[in-house]
Nucleic acid binder design. Structure first.
Lengths: 243, 243
DNA sequence: GGTTGTGAACAAATTCACAGCG
DNA sequence: CGCTGTGAATTTGTTCACAACC
């Protein structure tokens, strides 16, 4: 198969959502392995570093193309490059955070965003008393500046770090300002127009999920007298909730 | 056997992982609806509030038991109670956070944990210069105090908010101290012994996933024959809906 | 020999559609 | 009639197992 045909075939491949969610983890593992001066890596080793099994790694990578060499493994640098390209990480994405409370503050300070190509370009708040302050070299601006800032900074990714009640309105304003990817930290369900991607991180929900499994282990919901059979761990090695 | 039939049947019902992850969202919706003085709620309405479809709500709730009334809907208070019980939220779970940096700090301050039954009972750090400080009324303690604190506080849930390099060691120490549920915020893969639940929240990974879909919308990875350059400014309008 | 890439088998999750019951 | 509860159908994701290839 010639080069042109191959690239067309790759483009039309639809990558499953579950795979997309794992690519960043593989990428991180590859960076580590590259720092450790490895030049090639097997699916087995990559699986170990990423905390999944080797079959899954191979299947996932196969959606990107046939970048491995049988009998050898994958070239670390080449795979890193292909993966970065696929994830759109060949350039920075300036993000705009709305909500300069506890969490917004912490996120703005969090170096992990900048380090991975997501510099915090602006921090907005609705509270006039917060506007004008400076956090980690970033001016706190008014939410009403959103349209201007999106245009000025060319941001397409927004982060919602407001209280729950404000989340939907902020999402609406982001969408109408031209933001097309939103990460929501507010403990509220928000809806976005077609063409806008949304992901959510709900800190309390994560603890509540842990609480469920914790309690299963402790003997299940107790509405009767003591239960003698202590159910074993519901441990499926592949289940996301359990190690 | 009859005397326990109902509770055994319920207990042995294996609730799918995907369902468990949605229960807290339903619960939050129910609390809202209860605050709004509603006494019953349909699967349709609950679905709307939770951002899913009605069939999924009914299927999910059916794993808890037959708590609805045909032609009417679900009793809000009763369903709230059953769900809280199932999730193990009938009592508080004191959590121990390790890592008093940016994120640990923010989490300790974050009221959302306490409000939902997860009071931050201790904040630990390896850095002696941080130990002895006070955050939101919580003393910062040394990581070496972990065993003592777990015993003293009766905590079974731990939160890792350290840099990536420290994450695995902290997880190990938590597990050996008796912590059986861990929420990991460090951008690193950690493994835990059987019988310990683990969930992870990786902030940068979330943005990277958004970046993938963003870029798909912008026209996919650009690699036409010998041009490895990235698209400069991602301001392409055409948007095949992703979500 | 060693390791990838992938159809085929299997498992989990979602959605459909309607019987069953208030 | 209205809405739940659930089998059946469908879709999505995971794992197996082995041919293909270096």
């Amino acid at each position: 198969m010639d080069r042109y045909a191959r690239s067309v075939a790759e483009r039309s491949r639809r990558i499953p959502e579950a795979t997309v969610a794992r690519l960043p983890v593989y990428l991180r593992a590859l960076v580590e392995e590259s720092d450790a001066k490895a030049t090639t890596i097997s699916s087995e080793r990559l699986a170990e570093l990423a905390g999944v099994n080797a079959a899954k790694v191979r299947k996932d990578l196969s959606y990107l193309g046939s970048y491995g060499t049988r009998g050898v493994g994958y070239d670390v640098e080449y795979l890193m490059f292909q993966m970065s390209r696929e994830l759109g990480l060949t350039h920075d994405w300036p993000v705009i955070i709305v909500g300069a409370g506890n969490l917004g503050h912490a996120l703005a300070n969090y170096g992990g965003f900048r380090d991975r190509g997501f510099p915090v370009a602006a921090l907005l708040d609705a509270d006039p008393s917060k506007v004008g302050g400076r956090i980690q070299g970033i001016d706190v601006r008014a939410v009403d500046d959103l349209d201007d800032l999106v245009a000025e900074l060319g941001s397409v990714i927004g982060v919602i770090a407001t209280p729950a009640v404000a989340a939907q309105e902020v999402a609406d304003r982001m969408a109408s300002a031209g933001i097309t990817s939103i990460l929501n930290f507010a403990p509220a369900v928000v809806t976005v127009p077609d063409g806008v991607s949304l992901r959510k991180v709900d800190l309390a929900v994560e603890l509540q999920i842990l609480s469920f499994y914790q309690q299963q282990r402790d003997g299940g919901p107790d509405d009767e007298a003591g239960n003698p059979d202590a159910p074993a761990t519901p441990t499926d090695p592949a289940a996301p909730a359990v190690g």
